[in-house]
Computed example of a mutant assay.
Amino acid sequence: MPPLKLRHSVRAVVLDEEDRVLLCRCALPGEVVWVAPGGGVEEGESMYEALKRELHEEVGLNFDGPLLHVWQQRLIGSAYARDHDGVLNDYFLVRTSAFEPIGALSGHELAAESITAIRWWGVNEITEYRGPELFGPQNLAAALRALIVEGVPDQPVLIGR
């Protein structure tokens, strides 16, 4: 069996001073999912460069701090990345003051990337949400709680779908 061809992506767990997380609403075929900002690592880009680019484009955040690798996620299936067998997401903690998320991409460009809204969420809001939209990963609230209470892990924590 040939090795899987995975698209490498980076995502930012952007937490403000109130421990709210910044999430992007992605309207995908058949479902809507709130996910951390980020995207694919382009050829020749480091994870740091890719994350800086994605944060600037999607939410307008420019940062120069260290990347604290907190989670890793492996999703297998053709629906996760075109022309790939799945995606490998590396998540990094970015601490910042709250800000109004307005990225360099236009609303039309964001929509082309399936992003239809961006907002701050409290962990309790995620836990108590009962609407039809999903959160990615599915255990986002629990993973955030652990990150906030226990701090940055020594090794990235493997998270599920």
Rank of each mutant, 00 (worst) to 15 (best):
I159A: 02
G160L: 05
A27P: 00
I126E: 04
W34C: 09
P3C: 08
L6G: 03
Y129I: 02
V33K: 13
E49H: 10
I126V: 13
E133A: 07
G30R: 05
E17R: 10
S78T: 14
E54D: 11
I102D: 10
C24R: 10
L105A: 06
W71A: 05
S9Q: 10
W120D: 04
E45A: 06
E109M: 14
C24I: 06
F99E: 05
D64N: 09
R95Q: 11
H8N: 10
N89D: 09
F99L: 04
H56Y: 13
P37Y: 01
L15K: 01
L4F: 13
T96V: 11
R20E: 01
V32R: 10
R74W: 04
R11Q: 12
E128K: 11
V94C: 09
L88Q: 13
T127C: 03
R7W: 02
P132L: 05
A36R: 01
F92D: 08
W121V: 09
L93Q: 11
E125D: 15
L23P: 08
N89I: 07
V14Y: 05
A12E: 01
A104G: 14
W121C: 09
A141V: 00
V21Q: 01
R7C: 09
V152S: 12
D154F: 08
E42R: 07
W34D: 06
L4G: 01
L15F: 03
V87C: 07
L68S: 14
L23W: 08
T127N: 05
V32W: 07
